[in-house]
Protein backbone atom coordinates (compact mmCIF):
# COMPACT_ATOMS: atom_id res chain seq x y z
CA UNK A 1 0.00 0.00 0.00
CA UNK A 2 2.80 2.43 0.89
CA UNK A 3 4.60 1.51 -2.32
CA UNK A 4 1.47 2.08 -4.45
CA UNK A 5 0.72 5.44 -2.87
CA UNK A 6 4.12 7.01 -2.41
CA UNK A 7 6.68 5.38 -4.73
CA UNK A 8 6.05 7.80 -7.60
CA UNK A 9 6.37 10.84 -5.37
CA UNK A 10 9.59 9.66 -3.72
CA UNK A 11 11.10 8.52 -7.01
CA UNK A 12 10.35 11.89 -8.64
CA UNK A 13 11.75 13.80 -5.68
CA UNK A 14 14.96 11.73 -5.91
CA UNK A 15 15.13 12.13 -9.68
CA UNK A 16 14.61 15.89 -9.57
CA UNK A 17 17.21 16.19 -6.81
CA UNK A 18 19.94 14.02 -8.35
CA UNK A 19 19.12 14.32 -12.05
CA UNK A 20 20.04 10.65 -12.50
CA UNK A 21 17.38 8.02 -13.24
CA UNK A 22 19.53 5.12 -12.03
CA UNK A 23 20.61 6.94 -8.89
CA UNK A 24 16.99 7.93 -8.19
CA UNK A 25 15.88 4.28 -8.35
CA UNK A 26 18.54 3.20 -5.86
CA UNK A 27 17.76 6.12 -3.56
CA UNK A 28 14.02 5.41 -3.67
CA UNK A 29 14.71 1.86 -2.54
CA UNK A 30 16.95 3.14 0.27
CA UNK A 31 14.33 5.67 1.37
CA UNK A 32 11.60 2.98 1.53
CA UNK A 33 13.92 0.77 3.53
CA UNK A 34 14.50 3.66 5.91
CA UNK A 35 10.76 4.32 6.04
CA UNK A 36 9.97 0.75 7.11
CA UNK A 37 12.64 0.96 9.80
CA UNK A 38 11.23 4.27 11.08
CA UNK A 39 7.49 3.49 11.00
CA UNK A 40 7.45 2.84 14.76
CA UNK A 41 8.60 6.45 15.32
CA UNK A 42 5.71 7.93 13.34
CA UNK A 43 3.57 10.35 15.37
CA UNK A 44 -0.05 9.77 14.30
CA UNK A 45 -0.89 13.40 14.94
CA UNK A 46 1.43 14.43 12.11
CA UNK A 47 0.67 14.40 8.42
CA UNK A 48 2.12 11.15 7.02
CA UNK A 49 2.94 12.53 3.61
CA UNK A 50 4.90 15.44 5.11
CA UNK A 51 6.68 13.10 7.52
CA UNK A 52 7.72 10.83 4.64
CA UNK A 53 8.92 13.81 2.62
CA UNK A 54 11.08 14.85 5.60
CA UNK A 55 12.64 11.37 5.74
CA UNK A 56 13.30 11.52 1.99
CA UNK A 57 14.71 15.05 2.19
CA UNK A 58 17.06 14.16 5.05
CA UNK A 59 18.23 11.02 3.30
CA UNK A 60 18.86 12.75 -0.04
CA UNK A 61 20.80 15.63 1.50
CA UNK A 62 22.85 13.30 3.74
CA UNK A 63 23.73 11.03 0.84
CA UNK A 64 24.60 14.05 -1.28
CA UNK A 65 27.02 15.29 1.35
CA UNK A 66 28.68 11.89 1.58
CA UNK A 67 28.96 11.16 -2.13
CA UNK A 68 29.19 14.66 -3.60
CA UNK A 69 26.91 14.25 -6.60
CA UNK A 70 27.68 17.76 -7.72
CA UNK A 71 30.77 16.29 -9.36
CA UNK A 72 28.61 14.22 -11.67
CA UNK A 73 26.43 15.57 -14.44
CA UNK A 74 22.70 15.18 -14.66
CA UNK A 75 21.10 12.81 -17.16
CA UNK A 76 20.59 14.32 -20.61
CA UNK A 77 17.50 16.47 -20.69
CA UNK A 78 14.73 14.26 -22.05
CA UNK A 79 12.37 15.62 -24.68
CA UNK A 80 9.71 13.62 -22.86
CA UNK A 81 9.57 16.60 -20.51
CA UNK A 82 7.90 18.65 -23.25
CA UNK A 83 5.40 16.18 -24.61
CA UNK A 84 2.50 17.36 -22.52
CA UNK A 85 2.85 21.02 -23.51
CA UNK A 86 1.28 22.94 -26.37
CA UNK A 87 3.25 25.58 -28.27
CA UNK A 88 2.22 28.30 -30.64
CA UNK A 89 5.07 27.66 -33.06
CA UNK A 90 8.03 25.31 -33.66
CA UNK A 91 10.37 28.21 -32.80
CA UNK A 92 8.72 28.65 -29.44
CA UNK A 93 9.03 24.94 -28.82
CA UNK A 94 12.78 25.06 -29.50
CA UNK A 95 13.29 28.05 -27.19
CA UNK A 96 11.24 26.49 -24.37
CA UNK A 97 13.12 23.23 -24.71
CA UNK A 98 16.47 25.02 -24.54
CA UNK A 99 15.35 27.00 -21.49
CA UNK A 100 14.15 23.90 -19.70
CA UNK A 101 17.42 22.15 -20.49
CA UNK A 102 19.39 25.08 -19.01
CA UNK A 103 17.24 25.13 -15.87
CA UNK A 104 17.43 21.33 -15.53
CA UNK A 105 21.23 21.43 -15.64
CA UNK A 106 21.32 24.58 -13.51
CA UNK A 107 19.65 22.74 -10.63
CA UNK A 108 22.98 21.05 -9.91
CA UNK A 109 24.62 24.42 -9.29
CA UNK A 110 22.29 25.15 -6.37
CA UNK A 111 23.25 24.17 -2.82
CA UNK A 112 21.38 21.11 -1.49
CA UNK A 113 19.06 23.10 0.76
CA UNK A 114 18.15 25.64 -1.91
CA UNK A 115 17.73 22.94 -4.57
CA UNK A 116 15.37 21.04 -2.28
CA UNK A 117 13.11 24.04 -1.58
CA UNK A 118 13.01 24.88 -5.31
CA UNK A 119 11.98 21.30 -6.10
CA UNK A 120 9.30 21.31 -3.40
CA UNK A 121 7.93 24.74 -4.30
CA UNK A 122 8.27 25.14 -8.06
CA UNK A 123 8.38 21.59 -9.42
CA UNK A 124 6.05 19.89 -6.94
CA UNK A 125 3.95 22.98 -6.20
CA UNK A 126 3.85 22.59 -2.42
CA UNK A 127 2.68 25.43 -0.17
CA UNK A 128 5.26 27.40 1.80
CA UNK A 129 4.02 26.17 5.18
CA UNK A 130 4.21 22.55 4.00
CA UNK A 131 7.80 23.12 2.86
CA UNK A 132 8.66 24.76 6.18
CA UNK A 133 7.41 21.64 7.97
CA UNK A 134 9.25 19.23 5.67
CA UNK A 135 12.49 21.21 5.85
CA UNK A 136 12.04 22.00 9.56
CA UNK A 137 12.77 25.66 8.86
CA UNK A 138 11.02 28.96 9.65
CA UNK A 139 8.64 30.17 6.93
CA UNK A 140 10.77 33.28 6.26
CA UNK A 141 13.89 31.17 5.68
CA UNK A 142 12.03 28.98 3.19
CA UNK A 143 10.78 32.00 1.24
CA UNK A 144 14.24 33.53 1.25
CA UNK A 145 15.79 30.30 -0.09
CA UNK A 146 13.16 29.97 -2.81
CA UNK A 147 13.90 33.55 -3.81
CA UNK A 148 17.67 32.95 -3.89
CA UNK A 149 17.24 29.74 -5.89
CA UNK A 150 15.02 31.37 -8.50
CA UNK A 151 17.37 34.33 -8.80
CA UNK A 152 20.35 32.03 -9.25
CA UNK A 153 18.60 29.98 -11.95
CA UNK A 154 17.26 33.11 -13.68
CA UNK A 155 20.78 34.53 -13.86
CA UNK A 156 22.08 31.26 -15.37
CA UNK A 157 19.28 31.44 -17.94
CA UNK A 158 20.07 35.09 -18.66
CA UNK A 159 23.78 34.37 -19.20
CA UNK A 160 22.96 31.44 -21.47
CA UNK A 161 20.61 33.57 -23.58
CA UNK A 162 23.11 36.44 -23.80
CA UNK A 163 25.83 34.02 -24.86
CA UNK A 164 23.62 32.60 -27.63
CA UNK A 165 22.69 36.06 -28.83
CA UNK A 166 26.35 37.01 -29.14
CA UNK A 167 27.13 33.93 -31.27
Amino acid sequence: MLVNTYSKRIFNMSYQFTGSYQEAEDLTQDIFFKLYNSLHKYDFEKNFSGWLSTIAKNYLIDRYRKTKWEKTTRDDFDEYNLISEQFESPEERVVKKENKKTIWEGLNTLSTEIRMVIILRDIQGKKYDEIAEIMDLPLGTVKSRVNRGRLQLAKILKEEMEMKNEM
Binding site: S7, K8, E25, Y36, I123, A154, K158, M161
Partner: peptide, 29 residues
Protein backbone atom coordinates in the same frame (compact mmCIF):
# COMPACT_ATOMS: atom_id res chain seq x y z
CA UNK B 1 13.85 35.34 -16.63
CA UNK B 2 12.52 34.61 -13.15
CA UNK B 3 9.08 34.10 -14.69
CA UNK B 4 10.59 31.87 -17.37
CA UNK B 5 12.52 29.90 -14.72
CA UNK B 6 9.36 29.31 -12.73
CA UNK B 7 7.41 28.25 -15.81
CA UNK B 8 10.17 25.83 -16.81
CA UNK B 9 10.27 24.27 -13.36
CA UNK B 10 6.50 24.00 -13.10
CA UNK B 11 6.44 22.27 -16.48
CA UNK B 12 8.58 19.27 -15.48
CA UNK B 13 6.07 16.40 -15.51
CA UNK B 14 6.22 13.47 -13.11
CA UNK B 15 8.15 10.41 -14.30
CA UNK B 16 6.59 6.96 -14.05
CA UNK B 17 8.12 4.37 -11.74
CA UNK B 18 9.58 1.38 -13.61
CA UNK B 19 8.30 -2.17 -13.03
CA UNK B 20 11.78 -3.15 -11.93
CA UNK B 21 11.80 -0.52 -9.17
CA UNK B 22 8.29 -1.50 -8.06
CA UNK B 23 9.45 -5.14 -7.72
CA UNK B 24 12.42 -4.00 -5.67
CA UNK B 25 10.19 -1.90 -3.40
CA UNK B 26 7.63 -4.70 -2.88
CA UNK B 27 10.39 -7.05 -1.81
CA UNK B 28 11.60 -4.78 1.02
CA UNK B 29 8.93 -5.60 3.70
Amino acid sequence: YIKETRESLTGFPEMEVSENLLDRLYSIP
